[in-house]
């Protein structure tokens, strides 16, 4: 059981912003979908630092990312 970031796709699609992707410290983890214009998380690589949540909720006041609990194998 560990925390990973999860993007709320519907919320995220409202904005054409990529700030969380630009501030994730992990490579190839928080990715951006070219055609849907949403960020998406590669759960297997996310270390759960929640910097993206800080960027989205505290800096931009958009609340499109939340931390969710997953179990290995999800």
């Amino acid at each position: 059981m560990y925390y990973v970031a999860d993007v709320k796709e519907k919320e995220c699609a409202k904005y054409n912003c990529k700030q969380c992707v630009l501030f994730c410290p992990e490579p190839n983890t928080l990715m951006y979908h070219d055609s849907k214009h949403v960020a998406w998380v590669n759960y297997g690589r996310c270390k759960g630092c929640a910097i993206c949540v800080y960027v989205c909720s505290d800096l931009l006041k958009r609340n499109c990312i939340e931390m969710v609990m997953v179990t290995a194998g999800d």
Binding site: K18, V21, L22, P27, N28, L30, M31, Y32, A39
Partner: peptide, 13 residues
């Protein structure tokens, strides 16, 4: 650098 997240990055896990 603004294209981050849309290409495969050089650095791995």
């Amino acid at each position: 650098v603004q294209q981050l997240g849309q290409f495969k990055e050089l650095v791995e896990e």
